[in-house]
Design a binder for these strands. Structure first.
Lengths: 129, 129
DNA sequence: AGTCTTAATGGTATATTATATCATTAAGGA
DNA sequence: TCCTTAATGATATAATATACCATTAAGACT
């Protein structure tokens, strides 16, 4: 028996779909918690991990901030504004060639990569002028 | 009066120079602490921040791990093993050109980027055979 | 449907990284 | 030497995340 479909896991996955904009684990917890108040924060974290392991979700690691979860499984890059912290998808092609460039360094097998850009979003550029 | 040269600040800066291997704040604290046991952990964190603000040090943000400090280290890429979960530095050059490739998409200003590769480390490749 | 194995849950504790607060100390200009 | 205030150190707290463990329940197998 490998994986069981629990109500809590379904809620967790649905929450990431409902919260379209790259929610953090905390965002997911808050959303699920309103629908099912007795859920444990631990359960949400655990299920997010499991759902990433089973490729139902994508984990987007953010430096100096909480990981975010993405229901958009097709490879794409992300941008995080240094000012407001918002994370968004970059509408740009995934560069398969980068995997090949870095394949084999130190005897490692490269399957994929993710890129996180940072800088200023249009809004925050305006505000800083 | 803008900035004062305290013994503790000097110790902190010297420690980062002495610890060649892009130390974490904790590494720096431990090093300084052996020389000056009464120093506070808060003081080390605060001085590392100040030294970064004054461009005496560079902060290197790491996905899902403590920030690292160095005076000459440039951003570098990371690899995470899908099997054992270990994260390590990739000994490969930082590609400045990627910033330019993605500059201006959606009106965003790109300052930097980080790449996280995933796949199998040499150990886990052996084990999976 | 009843039983059984064990994955999953929920509550609590704990780890890690880092900043906030605040009374006290001391750097360095006057 | 005095004075202003930057810096310190101790403690508390925040944010993110996992460890632990007794209990519950999913779903496979009769």
């Amino acid at each position: 028996m490998n994986q069981r479909n629990t109500f809590q896991r379904t809620l967790t996955l649905d929450a990431v779909h409902a919260l379209a904009n790259h929610p953090t684990a905390d965002d997911v917890y808050n959303f699920v918690h309103t629908k099912y108040p007795q859920i444990s924060r631990t359960t949400v974290y655990r299920n997010l991990n499991k759902l990433c392991d089973s490729n139902d979700l994508l984990r987007v690691k953010i430096f100096g901030a909480a990981d975010r979860f993405d229901h958009n499984l097709h490879s794409h890059y992300h941008f995080r504004c240094d000012e407001c912290g918002e994370v968004c998808d970059l509408d740009a092609p995934y560069m398969e060639s980068i995997n090949e460039m870095f394949a084999g360094i130190g005897g490692r097998k490269v399957n994929a990569h993710q890129i996180l850009f940072d800088g200023l979003c249009p809004e925050c550029q305006k505000n800083s002028k």
